[in-house]
Design a protein around this nucleic acid. Structure first.
Lengths: 201, 201
DNA sequence: GGCACCATTGTGGAAATCCGTAATGTTCGA
DNA sequence: TCGAACATTACGGATTTCCACAATGGTGCC
């Protein structure tokens, strides 16, 4: 999925001029004439950033923003507004908007913000992919292996784990060795480091 | 150090009315007539929150904010402004301000924001104290113990650690046992969990 | 000098881990 | 129904950790 700048504005002229501006800076764009239209297209695999007009016929920019947030949107959102409205800007930024820009604005500056937003999104995706591959790795573990791993991470001895799971120590050793192998670690400490901060479930 | 709401505004009347409002809600306040005056008082042990006027004689609110940020200020900052200025609000919030409020505003609302800010500051201090006590704990380790700990956390065997540090395995065992004792853990895995996410240096 | 703290090492045994080889039973999908 | 994957266990030895007891030498402070 290629990163796009998604432009949501009910003013065709603005979408066109913004699109032209961004394309000239090497940013691929897609325009939407209403919040509803974008919402129908949106899914959580989109990458890039979102430029959102405040005032639109039908659903407003902030309303769309709230809905997208609920649905787990990860695209950075830049709000565009024609009339200075401090409370709205404050509210949007506190809810996690990437930026809030007044129209008309310095075109060059806006393009820079968009590029910043794209870069942020890319970095976040890179960071998430690490967590994801780890999760995928954990998914390859069998039920027993996960149970053993959980207890190993609690610092329990094999003997204790065996008692808890009502199986022999040897079996615990086997599961332990297998899961270490699958996780690509040699020791329990390495495993703990690998999962540092994660739930480990 | 008791949490205060530090009011910085060059308008005596506003300081007084704000102070009265907040005191009536149980918030202790201290007023300052200029950014310079507050800056002279500020130190990194202050707790509470900061209400900062944008326009002031001498140093402006945003200027003071920048300086405090450089100096490691952890107080949540609420900006107060008389004239709606979206770019300034955006800039302040992106720099980490807690809130940005237009005057005149709903007194009750402002007091709520202040109380939120105080609560945030308290939570942050609680979270930091955990990290601090951990750091204090690590400081009680001797040089050798830290060296051993570092290697234990890399999942190295005592034998390998002994070779690296050019000492006997027995000595490593002693250091290991001592540092486990000081850190209050029974196993290497517990130690790794304790330091999850920290540098461990 | 005496004392506390640190670093160092040894002996030796109990306990735990690590691991190859081998085997049995279950489950689930082709 | 056959086979792959999983769970289980045993034997036995190599390696490692854990620990009590014991000792030596250096540094820094009162």
């Amino acid at each position: 999925m290629i990163p796009y700048a998604y432009l949501v504005d009910d003013d065709d002229a603005i979408r066109d001029s913004l699109g032209w501006l961004l394309e000239s800076r090497g940013v691929a764009c897609r325009g939407f004439g209403s919040a509803e239209e974008f919402l129908a297209t949106w899914n959580d695999t989109l990458t890039g950033c979102l430029l959102l007009d405040i005032r639109m016929d039908g659903m407003s920019g902030p309303e769309l923003f709230d809905i997208l947030n609920e649905r787990g949107n990860k695209l950075p959102v830049i709000f565009l507004t024609g009339h200075g409205d401090v409370p709205m800007a404050v509210s949007a930024l506190k809810k996690g908007a990437f930026d809030f820009v007044e129209k008309p604005c310095n075109d060059n500056e806006l393009a820079n913000r968009v590029i910043e937003a794209l870069r942020l999104n890319e970095n976040q995706r890179l960071a998430a992919s690490g967590a994801d591959s780890l999760k995928t790795l954990i998914d390859t573990l069998t039920t027993r292996e996960k149970q053993v791993m959980e207890r190993v991470l609690s610092g329990k001895l094999n003997k204790v784990i065996a008692e808890e799971l009502l199986i022999s120590m040897r079996t615990v050793e086997v599961h332990r060795a297998n899961l270490f192998d699958k996780m690509g670690v040699r020791t329990a400490v390495e495993l703990a480091q690998l999962l540092a901060g994660k739930s480990g479930k």
